[in-house]
């Protein structure tokens, strides 16, 4: 599947969360959520993830995850792709940007 395809966008614009987090925050499978870190904010779709510990989220590698991770590599070349602290909010009423919009926005700021 090409990176400019809808399938790719749908595959990478999700955040898997565990059942407990989802019920506490009243988030349903497929609901929009806003993820906030010190580096940025992005809206994606929540999915019920299997085998995740409460408090842990998983976003597939891709442009949506890249919005909220730091480019500091601690002098290693490797950014923090994993283990990033983030806040999760319900984001009803907002929308998931298309990849084109997302890239344009990243370049603009």
């Amino acid at each position: 599947m090409g990176k400019t395809s809808r399938d790719y966008t749908e595959a990478v614009s999700v955040c898997e969360l565990d059942r407990t987090t989802m019920s506490v925050l009243e988030i349903g499978d497929g609901d929009l959520v806003s993820l906030e870190t010190i580096d940025g904010e992005v809206v994606v779709r929540a999915r019920l993830g299997r085998g995740l510990e409460p408090g842990m989220g998983f976003i597939p590698a891709g442009p949506y995850a890249n919005v909220i991770i730091s480019a500091d590599t601690w002098e290693s070349g490797m950014p923090d792709f994993k283990g990033v602290r983030a806040k999760v909010f319900k984001a009803a009423g907002s929308r998931v940007f298309s990849i084109k919009e997302l890239v344009a926005k990243m370049l603009e700021e």
Binding site: D39, P63, V67, S70, A71, M106, E109
Partner: peptide, 27 residues
């Protein structure tokens, strides 16, 4: 790189020319 680098790195591509060799369309 546009699909795989963090935002602050992608911003470093904002005002520089990019030459892209690839068989397929990508980001």
């Amino acid at each position: 790189p546009i699909a795989h680098f963090p935002r602050a790195a992608i911003q470093g591509l904002k005002s520089i020319p990019i030459i892209n060799l690839d068989p397929k369309r990508n980001l």
